[in-house]
């Protein structure tokens, strides 16, 4: 479908960065939600904004999507200033907020038609694009049912479809997979990867480290409204370096003995959580043998022992002094647990 040319079409500057933010500060009364965020998203790349609850992820996205005014600092999206050229920014972006924002009483198709119309797209285009998206997101069968009857995963997909109706070049995704089961999560990852493959620039927030690991080219770690690290996933891992030894003990009571037994084997402070023991080590896989011997000598029996490359979780822990998901113990964390136990 061709764009109808019209007089006074806004000049679209081609900038290197799809998103560029400098010194974003946001105060809500006494609360300083953002404390000087600098951020760039190169065109065609995926940048993951990683941070714990309350670190300012949503606030950052809302400022970039023109929903909030920054207290100070500046940001350009697609070369347009988010404050002075809000409408141009809005024409350039798709936004999927932290909670599925669709009209529950309208069907999937009606939702897409409505958002397409509000995007000022031609009727025929909206109709064919809706069909395309409904098929792509596996919603064709449910297209004419009210969104109220959709599962969480379906709603999320509809929400994403709604932000893609105008084929935006830049997509903001605020915790796109929070609350989804592992299978729907992977399904959504595939969809996002495909969009990126087609050239969409994505800024994605997440508190799931494996999600950032999986999807993002660059990761920006934020905590308490500040960027505390950024780089590719492997750069971040290299920053804290070293392998870790992970041991599952037979019973929690032996944790203290294990710490004691391994003090000569490990290369740094160990952490324990119940029957789980973890500590940085140096010297490759031979430390595993040393560790088993040392534990055996102290009669500590072991259910599982493994050497592990650092994860972003460790990066996070090292940088913030607290885990990414510390504040949310009730959150089920399927894939991470699986990954740990297996090695």
């Amino acid at each position: 479908m061709r764009r109808k040319e019209s007089p006074g079409v806004t000049f679209v500057p081609v900038t290197e960065y799809a998103v560029q933010a400098e010194g974003l500060v946001k105060e809500f009364g006494d609360v300083k939600a953002l404390n000087g965020i600098d951020l760039v998203v190169p065109r065609g790349k995926v940048v993951g904004l990683l941070g714990p609850n309350g670190s300012g992820k949503t606030t950052t996205v809302r400022i970039l999507a023109t929903l909030l005014k920054a207290t100070s600092g500046s940001a350009q999206v697609n070369g347009f200033d988010v404050q002075r050229q809000a409408d141009d920014v809005r024409r350039s972006i798709g936004l999927t907020g932290q909670y599925a924002a669709v009209d529950e009483f309208l069907t999937g198709r009606e939702n897409l038609t409505m958002f397409g119309g509000l995007f000022h797209l031609e009727k025929n285009y909206v109709a064919s694009r809706s069909d395309e998206l409904l098929h792509k997101f596996d919603l064709a069968d449910a297209a004419d049912r009210p969104a109220k009857t959709y599962s969480g995963g379906m709603r999320r997909r509809l929400d994403l479809a709604a932000s893609l109706i105008a084929k935006p070049g830049i997509l903001f995704l605020d915790e796109p997979t929070t609350g989804l089961d592992p299978r729907s999560r992977i399904g959504l990852w595939d969809v996002i990867s495909e969009l990126v493959f087609e050239g969409t620039t994505v800024l994605l927030t997440t508190q799931y480290l494996d999600e950032a690991d999986q999807l993002a080219d660059d990761i920006v770690v934020i905590d308490q409204g500040q960027v505390i690290a950024h780089g590719t996933s492997s750069e971040l891992k290299d920053q804290i370096g070293g392998d870790r030894i992970e041991i599952t003990l037979d019973d929690e009571q032996s944790a203290a003995r294990a710490i004691d037994a391994l003090s000569g084997v490990v290369s740094g402070e160990p952490t324990t959580e119940g029957a789980q023991y973890s500590a940085p080590v140096a010297g490759g896989s031979s430390v595993l043998i040393d560790a088993v011997r040392a534990l055996d000598a102290r009669n500590v029996s072991v259910a599982d022992i493994a050497l592990r490359r650092p994860t972003l979780d460790d990066v996070f822990l090292a940088m913030t002094g607290h885990g990414a998901e510390d504040q949310q113990p009730e959150r089920p964390e399927p894939s991470r647990r699986g990954r740990r136990g297996g090695r």
């Binding site: 479908m1 061709r2 764009r3 109808k4 019209s6 007089p7 006074g8 679209v12 697609n78 024409r91 350039s92 409505m114 119309g117 509000l118 995007f119 000022h120 797209l121 031609e122 025929n124 285009y125 909206v126 694009r129 105008a166 084929k167 935006p168 070049g169």
Partner: peptide, 24 residues
């Protein structure tokens, strides 16, 4: 990059009515 299938421009009031009717 701009959205495909964009309708031609209308005066602000025209869009306000257009959008209001969709919402209604």
């Amino acid at each position: 990059m701009s959205a495909p299938g964009v309708q031609s421009r209308r005066p602000v009031l025209g869009w306000t009515i257009h959008d209001s009717l969709i919402i209604a």
